[in-house]
Design a binder for these strands. Structure first.
Lengths: 213, 213
DNA sequence: CTCGAAAACGCAACCGAGTTACAAAAGATT
DNA sequence: AATCTTTTGTAACTCGGTTGCGTTTTCGAG
């Protein structure tokens, strides 16, 4: 199905990629708000309406990248080993991504990745949009949790748990990014990242009650 | 300090209120996106720049109302009875607000309140902005939790817990609003709202681990 | 009461995001 | 090559938000 060998299709793919890459390049160089969509369109030698035919908004020029990770948590739960609990699978997965210095964990000092994260986190309109992605992620995770049946068929509980899990993962990533952004190398920050992840998943699993209850 | 008896100050207050009230009125009647800021300004007989001197954005014409509730969770924690734990205080407070059919719980079938909630929740740009308010609320709660010292001085844990608590409260309110919006009277939905709140706070206190761990 | 400074306002023009209508161009089809 | 469809460019438009500037209104001091 990825073999739509038409010339037309190839051109579209190339235009789309050129738009996104050129846009991010310009945004990184001058800042998101200092580059207009007209600038991007001009740089790719495309008209403004055409740009919006490829990306519904200026923000999507940047954020379509992170859309690829949509549903990762849900997938982890679904594809976990039969003997593993959902939470244990998510925990193990997060630690594994940490060791791989996966950008999604925030623990990644690759200059390009860091600059990209910096762009997203320090541009209000971009940051606001990431929330929408988290919400979708949460929905998908809730569905996956519900399917496990551990809640005795309580859909509301699945949604609550999903919300908490996604929230915690976002906080973990933000914490890591902050330290990396403060100049710490990823390898140095790794132990603390693992420790915080343990704290977070312990809290998640054992409840806030043990501390503030 | 609320006694700035100047004529100037009084006029400003009146203009501000007129702008907000007229705007909400128009938005409720025709929909947020079908009313331009120029319409609002014209209805109040004020110029467009003046409108923006009072409210930094179109959304703030609506949302400045909910800004009043900022920091409610933090306040509850700070002003709790000495023998009460933070979580118990928050739980009791939520149940109490439920019994009072407080709009913040989503369980309120007052037509005006319902229409207002409907406006906020079904207008994407407004809904997006509410997230910012929640984030601020979360920050304040984190600080209040940290001060209790129950975490042994772990600021990160305070932030995690605050994030989870705020998230759960938002979900509870959304659930209630959904049912009210579906036509159920607040009094009818009250038992279920209490039940869900219990489930939510149990999950919060006892951990996701007991269910999905 | 008067006068001058400061605050608030209106006007008009402007910018940038996003949309629309229509006509022109380019790929696909026979 | 002729035709049909999809994609594109042009130009004009709407709307949120800003800016510069001149005018009015309020305040406060003499």
């Amino acid at each position: 199905m990825t073999e739509e060998t038409g010339l037309r299709e190839r051109k579209k793919q190339r235009t789309r990629q050129a738009l996104s890459e050129t846009a991010i390049e310009l945004f990184l160089a001058r800042g998101f708000d200092q580059v207009s969509v007209a600038d991007v369109a001009a740089a790719v030698e495309v008209s403004k309406p055409t740009l919006f035919r490829y990306f519904p908004s200026k923000e999507d020029l940047v954020l379509h990248r992170i859309a690829d990770h949509q549903g990762e948590a849900a997938r982890v739960v679904r594809e976990r080993a039969v003997e593993a609990s959902p939470l244990a699978a998510l925990r193990a997965h997060f630690h594994a991504r940490l060791d791989a210095y996966d950008p999604v964990t925030g623990l990644c000092d690759n200059p390009a990745v860091l600059a990209f994260h910096d762009l997203v986190f320090t541009t209000p309109s971009l940051l606001a949009r990431t929330v929408r992605y988290s919400e979708r992620d949460e929905e998908l995770l809730a569905a996956a949790l519900y399917e496990t049946g551990g809640d005795g068929g309580d859909e509301f509980m699945a949604r609550l748990a999903a919300a908490q899990i996604v929230t915690v993962q976002v906080r973990l990533a933000r914490g890591n990014w902050c330290r990396i952004n403060g100049g710490v190398r990823a390898a140095e920050a790794l132990p603390r990242a693992h420790a915080e992840a343990d704290v977070a998943f312990d809290l998640l699993g054992g409840g806030v009650g043990a501390v503030y209850g």
